[in-house]
Nucleic acid binder design. Structure first.
Lengths: 340, 340
DNA sequence: CTGTTAGCGCCTTCAG
DNA sequence: CTGAAGGCGCTAACAG
C-alpha cells in the first residue's frame, strides 16, 4: 500500500525544539497540569500543524493496551432494517465518544461467533456489544462473560450482563391505550403467535395489551395464531374470516402481519378502518407504505443502539441491569379516529 | 476493563525452552524455511496450547504498520436493506480473508466523512471501501484517491478508482427478455423517473429495456414519471389510469414503485397479471410480500459487497476498473405466464 | 517546566 | 538451528 510516511512525535519535538515528553504532554491535554508555558505549547502546536502530524494509533494501542474501538457481534445484519438501525445508533454514539465500530456477522453460527470474539479480543477492543435480531433469549458465549459486554436486543437468563431491549409490555399497553381512546373496547383480537422460538416479544406485548384492556374494564377477545410473516398472517386471517369471525380491532404483532391482515381484509371487502381497525408493532417503512397507513408502535432500535454503546463505555458498565426502551406511537390512519 | 493478562511470545519461548526467534518463526509458518526440527516445533506448539497464547495484534500492527482490518465508509446504513446486504457480503469476504471490518456511517455529511477517513487511516486500515446507497455518482474525498480504495455501488467520473456496481442496463435487458418471452410486445410502459438525482440506475435500466425491445421489433410505449416511492407511484399511476390510459405491462423501476402500482391497479379493479403484467427491480422482500408476488430483478448486493472486498485486498487492487454484476431474475406471479 | 530513559510485544537482521 | 539486539511510535516514571 502506498502509505505516505508520516511524521512522528519525535519529529514534532525536534521541529519545535522541545523534548518528546513535552510534546506528548501537550498532545494529551496535560499542558495545564504540567504547567507548560503557553509559548512552548504554541511552538509545539505549530510544529504539529506544519508536519500535519497525527499520532500513530497502533503505537498508542500497544502502549495503552486499549484501542478506541468497540466490537459488535451480530447474528444477522442483511435481513431487515432492524440490525441496521441499531448499528446506526451504535455508530453515532461510538463516534461521539471517539470510538470506532468493528463489526462481525455470525449468521447464527457458534463457531464463527467464537472466532470473531477472539479476533476482536486480540485487537484489544474496549468492549463488545452482543446484538441479536433472531432471538431475544440467548446464551452468551463464555468469552463475553468477563469483558465489558452489553447485550443488545437480547437477554441471557443465566448471565447477569447489562442489556438493552424494547419495552414490549409497555408497547402492548400503549396499543391498548390507543384503541381504548378510539372507543374500541369489544372484539379486540390479536394476530400472531403468542411467542416465537426464543423470543419473548410476542408474549410481553400480548400481556401488556390484555392487562391494560382489563384494567379499563374491557378484555382481549382472542388470538388468531400465525407466524409473523405476511403469507402466514394472510392465510390465517383468511381462514378465520371465512369461518364467519369478525373483529372491531386487530392488533398485529408486527408490520408484516399487518400487511397480511390487510390482504385478507381486502379480499373479504372489509375496509380499514371503517369496518376494522388495525394497529401493529414495528413502525417500519412497510407500515407507512400500506394504504391506509398502519398505525404502529415503533421499535426504538436507534436509541437502543446508542444506549448500548454509552452503557458499554461507562466505567461501571457492569451495573447496567436491564433497560427497556419505550415504543413510539406512529399514528397512521388504520384505527378509527386516527388523524394522520 | 478487567482484561486478563495474556501470555507473550517470550513466555512461550521460555516454556518451550527455545529462543523467541524460533518461536516467532514457527508462529509465522517459516519453520520449513528456517529448517526447524519437528521436535522443536512440537514443543513450541505445545507451549502455545498450554498458555493459550495469541499474538498481540497491537504489537504486530506497530511492527508491520498494517492491521488486518478494512474500513467501510457508508452514507446510510439504517435505511433499507441495501447497505446491510452489501455489508454482509463484505463482512463474509473480509472474514474469509482474515480481516475484520471497521464501519463508519457518514449520513452524507462531508465533514463526518473526512473525520472517519482520517480516523481509519490513523488506525492503519489496509484499505477502504467507499459505499453509497443514496447516489451512484459521487465525488470521492481526496483522502481516498491514493490509498487502497474500492467504490461500492457508486462511481466517481473524475477519479479512476476501481468500482463495483449493479449492471443496470443488463437488468433492463433482462426485464425486456422476460416480457417478450411472455408474449408482451405492445403497450409496455415504465413507471418511475428516467433518472433520479445523482443516479444513473433509472436511465440505464430504461436504456437496456428499450434497446432490447427494439431489437425484438417492439418498442417501449412510454413512461409514467414519478419518484421512486410507494405514494408517488400510486398517485401518478392513479392519475394516469384515470385519464383512460391502459398498459399490457408495467415495468416498475423499483419494488416500492411496484407496490404503489399495485395499489393504483387495485383501485381501478385491474387484475395482476390478468389485466396487466408487472415486473420490477430490486428483488427485495417487499416484492415477495405483495399479492401476487412481484417478478423482480434482484440487485446483486451481496455479491457486490464480497467482490469489493476481494478486489480491495488484491495486490493490484488499483487496476480493477468498473465491474458491473448481473441482476438475478426473481420470478413471482405478476407477469402473464409466470409459474411461481 | 523539561529531558532521559525504559519499556509495551513483536519481528528480523546478524552473528554464532 | 539459536541467541542477542535494535526498533516500530508512544507514554510515563524519574530525575533534574
Amino acid at each position: 500500500l502506498p502509505r505516505v510516511k508520516r511524521a512522528t512525535l519525535t519529529d514534532v519535538a525536534r521541529l519545535a525544539g522541545v523534548s518528546v515528553t513535552t510534546a506528548s504532554y501537550i498532545l494529551n491535554g496535560r499542558s495545564e497540569e504540567m504547567r507548560i508555558s503557553s509559548e512552548t505549547e504554541a511552538k509545539v502546536r505549530a510544529a504539529i500543524e506544519e508536519l500535519d502530524y497525527r499520532p500513530n494509533r497502533s503505537a498508542q494501542n500497544l502502549r495503552r493496551s486499549s484501542t478506541q474501538t468497540i466490537g459488535v457481534i451480530s447474528d444477522f445484519v442483511a435481513s431487515g432494517a432492524f440490525a441496521s438501525q441499531m448499528l446506526t445508533g451504535a455508530s453515532a454514539a461510538a463516534r461521539s465518544l471517539e470510538h470506532l465500530l468493528v463489526i462481525g456477522e455470525t449468521l447464527g453460527d457458534r463457531a464463527t461467533e467464537d472466532l470473531l470474539i477472539a479476533e476482536m479480543r486480540d485487537r484489544q477492543v474496549d468492549g463488545i456489544v452482543y446484538l441479536t435480531v433472531a432471538a431475544s433469549l440467548v446464551s452468551v458465549p463464555e468469552a463475553l462473560h468477563a469483558g465489558p459486554t452489553v447485550l443488545l436486543n437480547c437477554l441471557d437468563p443465566d448471565v447477569p450482563l447489562p442489556a438493552v431491549l424494547p419495552d414490549d409490555e409497555g408497547g402492548g399497553r400503549a396499543a391498548a391505550k390507543h384503541l381504548l381512546a378510539a372507543g374500541l373496547r369489544e372484539e379486540v383480537w390479536v394476530v400472531g403467535d403468542d411467542f416465537a422460538l426464543g423470543s419473548t416479544a410476542g408474549h410481553d406485548r400480548l400481556r401488556g395489551l390484555s392487562l391494560s384492556l382489563e384494567q379499563a374494564g374491557s378484555y382481549l377477545t382472542g388470538v388468531v395464531p400465525c407466524e409473523w410473516t405476511v403469507q402466514a398472517a394472510r392465510d390465517a386471517l383468511h381462514a378465520w374470516l371465512g369461518a364467519g369471525n369478525r373483529a372491531s380491532a386487530l392488533v398485529c404483532l408486527n408490520d408484516r402481519v399487518a400487511m397480511g391482515a390487510y390482504q385478507a381484509l381486502a379480499e373479504a371487502s372489509l375496509d380499514v378502518p371503517h369496518d376494522v381497525s388495525v394497529i401493529s408493532f414495528d413502525g417500519s417503512d412497510l407500515a407507512s407504505w400500506l394504504r391506509p397507513r398502519v398505525t404502529s408502535l415503533a421499535l426504538p432500535f436507534l436509541a437502543m443502539g446508542t444506549l448500548a454503546v454509552e452503557q458499554l463505555l461507562t466505567p461501571d458498565w457492569a451495573s447496567g441491569g436491564v433497560t427497556r426502551l419505550p415504543f413510539a406511537l406512529d399514528v397512521g390512519a388504520s384505527v378509527v379516529g386516527d388523524v394522520e
